[in-house]
Design a protein around this nucleic acid. Structure first.
Length: 557
RNA sequence: GCGCCCGUAGCUCAAUUGGAUAGAGCAUCAGCCUACGGAGCUGAGGGUUACAGGUUCGAAUCCUGUCGGGCGCGCCA
């Protein structure tokens, strides 16, 4: 809401600047910022500082001339009443203070747009696919996947809200050798359970869940004896195990509140024929070449350190080959922008997949790969072991069961995605201010209580506009409500839901302060009505923000 | 060795992408309940932004170097 006003003022300011310095052509772009310190206005501009050198005048002098022209321009403009004052402050900032009319406009807009408040059309319906989690179906999801799930889901929601046509997709790696190993692992455990000594290789999956699966496999297939077991091929084990674990993963994600629009399968998309076809097409363009009996992808042409083998000298494909085909498949489905969310262990893989996108005729920007850092899990300050190799990692299921879905999702979003995250299960379980998710949801619930009280006393929301909201805490709250869509556009700029999380925490602080200082329902009916409207606007923004993050909006707690 | 990321209060992290006096939470200390939910609010202390240079009106942010930490570097997936 306020960002629309910001853009309008920015344009007027740019016009003023152009009028004064018509002869100059390298004048920097006018950009308004929202200063952290509200003594510096609601918007501030550094254009005078930036252009002073070019214009060979002191920044203050430039600023003075700009605002003179700006104010003249404004006086002819409908924006006139939105501004309270404009001032120049050393070393040359132009600070703009908004009038109460501007603030009241925010409340009117929220009241009108409700669930849709904060929405923009930045996306213009662009078809974008966000692919995340995509864990190999070889075990339950870990906390690493959990964080990726929370991030991908929230980011997808936000982009959708900003006007993109978003699909969330999970890519099932059911084609590689790891599925064979999975099958062999289950098979070996089954033999052991029936008392036969078989070697359990080091690269087999070590987790306890493999034993459980072996028992279940035998139960479902009515296997009682070693002779029964011998009849099962290792392929039967693999297929059963893969399907079973995929079922587990789907259930975990759905319990976590994360839903995908599509599940795609490596085995269906990247068939050997398709891979061969794509590689040959690249070869005809000299983007794939043969050397030492292997086929190499010329990824160095697109900025990678070295070329990468796609087909080994024994004729088998490396993992990159089906991955190129998968990305080709995505583009062919009409997505003009792809977002992949990966764990930090795949960080070195980014240049070659981006190279692949370009080899397929796309631009670098058409594929973004986001790395979501790991979360380190603590319990009462004590580090919990995280070794994946031994299958001792903390699972999504454990975290969810222990701290609840909302607290877990919130904690995973509480830092920038590229920052390491410390997640203490005990803290997440606490229902105190230490735990910000409750702090925010509590604000939402409090407003519901106010509404109940208002209803009892027959106080309704303000129907005829606003005039009485003047207290500092009220204006601060309205200003924050007005910055909602700006927070969302930061999420888009950074491809990270974190700015929204940070915004909501700030909003909660501001709301609780207001609540503590001023009574909404009082003897002054007119004021009560306006404040009731104000807090309900806050309720709408809390709800919109929490919903985008995939969190509940409780009315009582 | 090469490449990428990071180093901010005792701890965990911010800082609107180069802006004005570097901010929150936790922890520590001191306050606020006959009110719409105390799961709340107010205040205090705590900093040479790892270090040394540089760029400019302005640097935690950009550049160079040093120190310290993490990750990646397979004809694996």
């Amino acid at each position: 809401m306020l960002d629309a006003l910001k853009t309008q003022l920015q344009n007027v300011l740019a016009d003023s600047l152009k009028d004064i310095f018509a002869s100059e052509n390298n004048v920097p772009e006018v950009i308004l910022e929202i200063p952290a310190d509200k003594n510096h206005g609601d918007f501030s501009c550094n254009i005078a500082l930036k252009s002073a050198k070019l214009l060979k005048k002191s920044p203050i002098a430039v600023a003075e001339r700009i605002i003179a022209a700006f104010q003249k321009e404004l006086s002819l403009n409908f924006l006139k009443n939105k501004i309270q004052k404009v001032e120049v402050k050393a070393p040359g900032f132009i600070n703009i203070f908004l009038s109460s009319e501007s603030f009241y406009d925010v409340l009117t807009a929220i009241g009108k747009q409700k669930d849709l408040y904060g929405q923009t059309s930045i996306g213009q319906g662009e078809k974008v696919q966000i692919e995340f989690v995509s864990a190999n179906p070889t075990g339950p999801l870990s906390v690493a996947h959990a964080r990726q799930a929370a991030v991908g889901d929230a980011l997808g929601n936000i982009l959708k809200f900003l006007g993109f046509n978003v699909d969330k997709e999970y890519y099932v790696n059911d084609g590689g050798n790891q599925i064979n190993i999975l099958g062999l692992s289950v098979r070996a455990r089954a033999f052991q359970i029936l008392g036969k000594e078989v070697e359990f290789l080091e690269d087999y999956y070590q987790g306890e869940y493999i034993k459980d699966m072996a028992r279940l496999f035998m139960e479902e297939n009515k296997i009682k004896t070693l002779a029964d077991l011998e009849k099962k091929t290792s392929k039967e084990f693999s297929q059963w195990a893969c399907a079973y674990l995929l079922g587990v993963i789907k259930k975990e994600l759905s319990d976590f509140g994360v839903h995908f629009d599509a599940w795609s399968y490596e085995s269906k998309i990247s068939t050997p024929e398709k891979i061969e076809k794509t590689l040959r097409a690249l070869k005809s363009k000299d983007l794939v070449y043969e050397k030492e009996g292997a086929w190499w992808f010329r990824s160095t042409s697109f900025g990678d350190d070295k070329d990468r083998v796609v087909k080994k000298s024994d004729g088998a494909y490396t993992y990159l080959a089906p991955d190129i085909v998968y990305h080709e498949n995505k583009f062919n489905r009409g997505y003009s922008w792809l977002i992949n969310i990966w764990g930090p262990d795949h960080h070195g893989y980014i240049p070659r997949i981006k190279a692949a996108a370009q080899a397929l005729g796309k631009n670098k920007e058409d594929l973004d790969v986001l790395i979501v850092q790991l979360a380190t899990i603590y319990r009462n300050g004590e580090l919990l072991s995280m070794s994946t190799r031994r299958g001792q990692y903390i699972s999504l299921r454990e975290v969810m069961d222990e701290v609840g879905v909302d607290a877990a999702r919130f904690f995973f979003l509480m830092r920038h995605i590229e920052a390491h995250l410390e997640f203490d299960l005990e803290v997440a379980k606490k229902q105190t201010a230490e735990n910000p998710v409750y702090y925010i949801q509590y604000a939402h619930a409090r407003i519901h209580s106010i509404n109940k009280k208002a209803q009892e006393q027959n106080i309704s929301v303000a129907e005829k506009g606003f005039s009485l909201l003047k207290e500092e805490e009220e204006i601060t709250l309205i200003r924050q409500l007005g910055e909602f869509s700006q927070a969302l556009s930061f999420c888009y700029d950074q491809l990270d839901p974190y700015p929204l999380v940070s915004y909501l925490m700030e909003l909660a602080i501001i709301f609780h302060r207001f609540y503590d200082k001023h009574k909404v329902i009082s003897d002054n009916i007119a004021l009560s009505q306006e404040r009731l409207t104000l807090v309900n606007c806050a309720r709408i923004v809390f709800a919109n923000g929490l919903r985008l993050l995939g969190l509940q909006t409780p009315e009582q707690m």
